[in-house]
Amino acid sequence: MLNIPKRKTEKKRLNVLQKKPEKLIDKDDMRLDGRKLNELRPTKIEVGVLGNADGSAYIEQGKNKILAAVYGPKEVHPRHLARPDRAVLRCRYHMAPFSVDERKSPAPSRREVELSKVIREALEPSIFVEYYPRTSIDIFIEVLQADGGTRCAGITTASLALADAGIPMRDLVAACASGKVDGHLVLDLMDVEDKAGEADVPLALMPNLNAVTLLQMDGSLTIEEFEKAVNLALDGCKQLYTLQKEALKSKYVAVKEALDE
């Protein structure tokens, strides 16, 4: 018999004063920030925000604020990392020292190194890496303010930065988490829900190809719950995807509309 741990992995309490609220979801199925169970946080996305990077994007999802920048394809440094048959994709997920309520050391933590790898692997299937051999594509994700679900928001943003850099892609990648909080399945967990809840399921999707590029789970869910959670997250990804497309097109649409007037 498989021994499934009942509790979620202990997540570090960053602020001792921040107590777990007694109820995360009230009797009208309303969440702490007034959202419904299957509602995303208010999301604002902007593309092409940085002048020096080849491509960039910025997201505000609830209290999350994340910047992504992309360089490349360009010559690989150090040279020995270059692959003769494809471009190498390198990714750095980093949280700014001021992104959480107690200063975080700017050195990459174990968690950040892991997330960098996970994000890279979630984005790689969307890119035609074989088109530009012997080059590298570098992705930088900088979390300016964190409030849960930053890996997903990071993927959503980085995918736009890649498109903005003009890198040929199979599809955009949209990512979103769902989870279980106070016995309810909810979409797009914020920090409190993530830490106090029973489970969370981050998922990344290429919506047009209907292909999942990231699926993780922390905590415990029954098989039925898991299926429901995945469907909920898929739905969230599709909502984010429409926002992504709008953000990517907005600059060009604005120019055109100004001329039509």
Binding site: P73, A163, A165, M169, L248, Y252
Partner: peptide, 24 residues
Amino acid sequence: IYASRIGLVDYEARKVHVVALKAF
């Protein structure tokens, strides 16, 4: 056939292509 870059669709006879707005 899918687009692989942001751009404007164009087609001649049987060939579909996208005039990219962002590319290197």
